[in-house]
Design a protein around this nucleic acid. Structure first.
Length: 495
RNA sequence: GGGUCGUUAGCUCAGUUGGCAGAGCAGCUGACUCUUAAUCAGCGGGCCGAAGGUUCGAAUCCUUCACGACCCA
C-alpha cells in the first residue's frame, strides 16, 4: 500500500514513462559488473583503456544540460559517473530525466579522471536496473558544515535499510561483526572444538538467572520456554562424550531494554573436558587477541579514546579484593548477611530487596568496581549463592571456581570449572528453589533431567560463555547494543 | 516501574510573550556538455504524534494517551 504523495506520484509517473519507452526497470533480471566501486577507485591505473561496467544506487545527480554527473553507491563505496548526450545518444540520454536519486543504475564505459582529478566512469551506456518509488533521505553537504541525512533514531532502527544506505558506519560495524563471528569460529575450529546445535524450545529454561519467554506447543499440549542460555544442553553433551563443544546461538531473556540489553541476543558457550578455569582464562586471552589481530592487526585497539591492550597475561583479582580496592570494604564484612547489608547501606545503596550475600556483593561490584575496569582483568572467586552451576573452591569456603573477564567496563564473559558432582548440583538447585520460593523469579529452576545426566558422570570440565553483542560493542566502540544489532527490538507501530 | 527530554513538509531543523506555519536540502518547470553532495530563475508541498481542555484566538498553555531517546531502579 502506497499512500498518496506528490513525491511518490512523480516517481510512479516516471516509471510509467520508462515502461512506455521499453526500458522497464523491473523487467531487468541481471547486469554483469566487471568491477566494484572500490576496485575501480583503487585500480584505475591498472585497468587502463578497457571497458568496465559497474552498478549501484544513484546517490547524487548533477545534470548540466546535455551532460550529467552522478554518483552510484555499491556495498564497497561510491564512484562518479559522467554521462554525455553525444556519447550515449540523445534518446538514451533523455532517459536520465526519468532517473531519481535512489534508483539503481548499471553503467558501462571507461575509467578515467575528470579535470579536477576525481576517478570517474565515462559512460558509453547505462541501464536503469530498478526504480525507487519512495525518496531516500540521502544526506547532503552545503558549504562547510551543514549535514542532512537520517538522524531520527527510531526511524533508523525501524527502517534499518535506510540507515544502511545513508550512514556508512552502520555497514562498517555490521561487517566487523561478521569478521568477529568468523574469527571466533575459525579459532575454535582450529582448537579442535565441535560446533553443535541444541534446542531453543525447552521445557525447563535454565543455565542463567533470567526470566524466559513462555510459549505453548499445541501438538505436545505442553508449555515450553525459549532458552535463556545454552549451558545445560551442552553439558549433557559432555556427559555424552564430546571433549570440546561450542554453540553460538540466539538466546532470549524476558527483561527490559537498555543500551546494554536486547531481549534476544547472541551467546557463545564452549565446554572443554579435563580443563579448569585457568585453562579457560588462557583460552579467553588467546581468543580475544586473535579477534583483535583479525580486526586491527595487533593486540591493541581503541575504545572511546582509551587504548586497550590485550597483551597477555591479563591481570587477575578476586571479586572481594577488587571491592576492597575500590571501596575499602574488606572480605570480612561479607561474612554475614547483616554486616554485608550494613556495608551496602554505608555506601549509599538501597538494600531493601537484597536477601543474599552474593546479591549484595554483586550490587556493590557493579556500582563501584565495574566502571573502573578498563584494561582487561579477570575477576575471580564468586560467591556460591550467585553461582549455582560452578564448582566450589575447596580452598575458599563460600566461593566458587569462577571468573568473569572485564574490558572497558564491559562484562565480556563468564566462566568456571563446571560442577560435575551431581549431589552438589542437586543441593544447589534445592537452594535456588528456596530463593525462588521467596520471590526471586530469576532463581534457577530445578532440572531433574539434567541431574540425571550428571548422575551418569561428566568429566571435569571448564566452561565459558561470551556475549557476542557486547563483544562487538567493545571492538567497534559502539555505545549502544542497538548499534550492533541490525534489527533491535522495538514496540510495534500502531496500525 | 520512576524521572528528564523529544515528536512541525520526503529529510534536517527553526518557530519570540498565545496572534496569517517557516528555512535549507529533494521535488516540479526552465537554462546550462568537466560538475564537486554544481549554478541561475521560477513553482508547488503541512492532520504541527493522537484525543480532550483553557482561550476571542493554541504548533505554543493544561490533562491524558502513543512512540522513541537518555538517566535511575
Amino acid at each position: 500500500m502506497i499512500e498518496e504523495n506528490e513525491l511518490i506520484e512523480n516517481r510512479l509517473e516516471k516509471l510509467k514513462t520508462l515502461r512506455e519507452k521499453g526500458a522497464d526497470p523491473f523487467a531487468v533480471e541481471r547486469f554483469d559488473r566487471s568491477h566494484t566501486a572500490m576496485q575501480l577507485l583503487t585500480g584505475a591505473d591498472e585497468i587502463g583503456e578497457q571497458t568496465v561496467s559497474a552498478a549501484g544506487r544513484v546517490v547524487s545527480m548533477r545534470p548540466m544540460g546535455k551532460a550529467t554527473f552522478l554518483h552510484i553507491q555499491d556495498s564497497t563505496g561510491r564512484i562518479q559517473v559522467y554521462i554525455k548526450a553525444d556519447t550515449v545518444g540523445a534518446e538514451t540520454y533523455q532517459l536520465l530525466s526519468l532517473v531519481d536519486i535512489g534508483d539503481f543504475l548499471g553503467v558501462e564505459g571507461s575509467i578515467g579522471k575528470t579535470r579536477t582529478g576525481e576517478t570517474t566512469i565515462f559512460a558509453k551506456g547505462f541501464e536503469v536496473l530498478s526504480k525507487s518509488l519512495r525518496p531516500i533521505p540521502i544526506g547532503k553537504q552545503k558549504g562547510d558544515q551543514e549535514w542532512y541525512g537520517l538522524q531520527d533514531v527510531e526511524q533508523r532502527y525501524r527502517q534499518r535499510y535506510l540507515d544502511l544506505i545513508v550512514n556508512p558506519e552502520v555497514m562498517d560495524t555490521m561487517v566487523k561483526r561478521s569478521i568477529i563471528v568468523r574469527a571466533i569460529r575459525q579459532f575454535l575450529d582450529d582448537e579442535g572444538f565441535i560446533e553443535v546445535e541444541t534446542p531453543v524450545l525447552q521445557a525447563v529454561a535454565g543455565g542463567a538467572a533470567a526470566k524466559p519467554f513462555d510459549t505453548y506447543y499445541n501438538a505436545l499440549n505442553h508449555e515450553f520456554h525459549l532458552r535463556i542460555s545454552l549451558e545445560l544442553y551442552l553439558k549433557r553433551l559432555m556427559v555424552g562424550g564430546f571433549d570440546k563443544v561450542y554453540e553460538m546461538g540466539r538466546v532470549f531473556r524476558n527483561e527490559g531494554l537498555s543500551t546494554r540489553h536486547n531481549p534476544e541476543f547472541t551467546l557463545l558457550e564452549l565446554y572443554q573436558a579435563y580443563t579448569n578455569l585457568e585453562d579457560m582464562m588462557d583460552l579467553v586471552e588467546r581468543l580475544f587477541n586473535n579477534i583483535c589481530q583479525q580486526l586491527y592487526g595487533g593486540h591493541t585497539f581503541s575504545y572511546n579514546g582509551e587504548t586497550i591492550s590485550l597483551e597477555r597475561p591479563w591481570k587477575r583479582i578476586p571479586l572481594l579484593e577488587s571491592i576492597r580496592e575500590h571501596t575499602g570494604i574488606g572480605p570480612e564484612e561479607f561474612e554475614t548477611l547483616e554486616s554485608a547489608k550494613s556495608a551496602g547501606v554505608r555506601l549509599g545503596l538501597p538494600m531493601d530487596e537484597e536477601n543474599t550475600i552474593g546479591g549484595i556483593v554483586d550490587k556493590i561490584f557493579e556500582r563501584f568496581v565495574q566502571p573502573k575496569l578498563i584494561q582487561p582483568v579477570f575477576i575471580t572467586e564468586y560467591p556460591v549463592d550467585i553461582s549455582p552451576l560452578a564448582k566450589k573452591d575447596p580452598a575458599n569456603p563460600g566461593m566458587t571456581r569462577r571468573f568473569e573477564p572485564y574490558i572497558a567496563a564491559y562484562e565480556v564473559g563468564n566462566a568456571f570449572s563446571e560442577i560435575n558432582d551431581p549431589l552438589d548440583q542437586r543441593e544447589r538447585f534445592i537452594d535456588q528453589a528456596r530463593q525462588r520460593a521467596t520471590g526471586d523469579a530469576e532463581a534457577h529452576p530445578m532440572d531433574e533431567d539434567f541431574l540425571r545426566a550428571l548422575e551418569h558422570g561428566m568429566p571435569p570440565t571448564g566452561g565459558l560463555g561470551i556475549g557476542i553483542d557486547r563483544l562487538v560493542m567493545l571492538f567497534t566502540s559502539s555505545p549502544s547494543i542497538r548499534d550492533v544489532i541490525l534489527f533491535p527490538q522495538l514496540k510495534p507501530e500502531k496500525q
